[in-house]
Amino acid sequence: MSQENSVGRAVVYVKLKDGVLDPQGSTIKRALEDMGYQGIKDIHFGKMFEITFQKDVKSKPEDLIDEICRKLLTNPVIEKYNFEILK
């Protein structure tokens, strides 16, 4: 197996849970309205992480990324996440 094949990539998206006040999102929405954009219903501020990792034959990449999300990348009290493993 070549070096290239043993490297995996994932993208993680983090946003505030529904119902959690998002002062940044609402301020951006107001700014868009001030700029004249009428049709914006809602806007949520979030974070994105690009992760490159060494593939491990013994475990699934989904489990690794999920664990990282839970342990460090998000605060489960206020944030939720989803991720994609890139092919």
Binding site: L16, V20, L21, D22, P23, Q24, T27, N75, V77, I78
Partner: peptide
């Protein structure tokens, strides 16, 4: 303390940003 779970809850950005 909030991040470590020793106290409950979390901090958001100030409403004024």
């Amino acid at each position: 303390l909030l991040e470590s779970g020793l106290l409950p809850g979390a901090m958001l950005r100030n409403t004024s940003l």
